[in-house]
């Protein structure tokens, strides 16, 4: 089976020659090609070359389009900082308070160069790899986007203390978001993974997820033209996972390494794909033997789960992660062999 066949068979719950292996190695491609990050996160060809190197080096089953959503803030006017070994961060948000929101001009997803970078990169990656490899785009849920435009503190304060203000913000974000994500699908993204900050029990209350996040998410997801994976955003997902089931377009969930996988499976039901694995931040601090042991333990636990995928939780696998550790993940998957439906 090639990777695309393996992923499609996983979605269908059909037998596999081996488990799908899907670490998030967007950033790591720059390390492999020795590409400065300023170039990597602005030049679709440079990013695509990095992902070709990821494919050649680690043979994952999914390639990741740029995980650099601070650039969406920059398209609104936020100032970015480019770091040596991290994806870009927001240095200064576009606006400093909600009062400035109405003066913002939303960027056009089909024209703004920072947003076109994503689409053009997906297109290039799909042209080079898309017949055999699924391409995953990563963009946070729409409720997380205002944080890169006005800063997390201002946005959290707005959601908590000014419901009308939060509604006004989302009225601008939602149509732009739908156009942007459908543009990713049109360019060749096989699916879109969405970190769920404003659905995380580390960040917001259950009431916020119930009354604010879920209704908007349901409305947005219903307008998307492709499958979506809901992502843990680097914090346990189980506490609110029940609030994220039954949503349109959602085909899979990437849970946190601290989440109980059996309980996650029970909550999402048998038909959704479940990703679990090692923490992208700490995998670099583990020994090869520890990576192997942990992966084998996870794979053993999910041995009879045909829709389970071994990957990484959190954002990108850290720059300083030794390549041997990533190889160890793949070898653990290969050693487990066939998966019967």
């Amino acid at each position: 089976m090639n990777s695309m066949e393996r992923v499609l068979a996983t979605l269908a719950g059909k037998p596999l020659d081996r488990r799908v292996f899907a670490p998030v190695l967007g950033l790591y491609g720059a390390r492999l090609t020795n590409c400065p990050l300023e170039q990597y996160y602005n030049d679709p060809a440079a990013y695509t070359a990095g992902q070709s190197a990821v494919r050649e080096t680690f043979r994952p089953d999914v390639l990741c389009a740029p995980l650099a959503f601070a650039a969406i803030g920059a398209a609104f006017g936020s100032e970015l900082t480019v770091l040596a070994t991290e994806s870009p961060n927001v240095r200064r948000p576009a606006i400093q308070s909600l009062e400035e929101w109405d003066s913002l001009v939303p960027p056009d997803p089909e024209k703004h160069p920072l947003l076109l970078y994503f689409r053009d990169t997906i297109r290039l990656m799909a042209a080079q790899h898309g017949s055999e490899m699924p391409i995953a785009m990563v963009i946070p849920i729409p409720m997380d986007i205002p944080a890169v435009i006005m800063g997390l503190e201002n946005w959290l304060g707005t959601v908590l203390f000014d419901p009308d203000g939060a509604k006004r913000v989302m009225e601008m974000i939602i149509p732009l978001y739908v156009r942007l994500v459908n543009g990713f699908f049109a360019a060749g993204a096989t699916f879109v993974a969405m970190p769920c900050g404003f659905a995380s029990s580390a960040i917001v209350t259950r009431e916020i997820v119930t009354n604010f996040t879920r209704p908007i998410l349901a409305k947005v997801l219903a307008q998307l033209r492709g499958p979506v994976i809901l992502h843990n955003v680097g914090a346990p997902m189980l506490p609110y996972l029940d609030l994220l089931t039954g949503l349109p377009s959602v085909a899979a969930y990437i849970v946190d390494q601290r989440d109980d996988l059996a309980e996650a499976r029970r909550l999402v039901g048998p038909d959704s794909v479940l990703f679990g694995g090692l923490d992208c931040t700490t995998i670099g601090q583990m020994t090869v033997a520890e990576v192997d042991e942990r992966c084998r333990a996870i794979l053993e636990e999910r041995r009879h789960d045909p829709r389970f995928v071994l990957g990484t939780s959190g954002p990108d696998v850290s720059w300083n992660t030794p390549p041997e550790n990533i190889h160890a993940m793949r070898k653990a998957v290969e050693s487990f062999g066939r998966i019967d439906a």
Binding site: E153, L156, L160, S201, A202, I203, V204, T205, P236
Partner: peptide, 14 residues
């Protein structure tokens, strides 16, 4: 016990 979220601690700070 992780009973509190960032949002609630933010409320405490405010």
């Amino acid at each position: 016990s992780e009973t509190f979220t960032l949002a609630q601690v933010y409320v405490a700070a405010k």
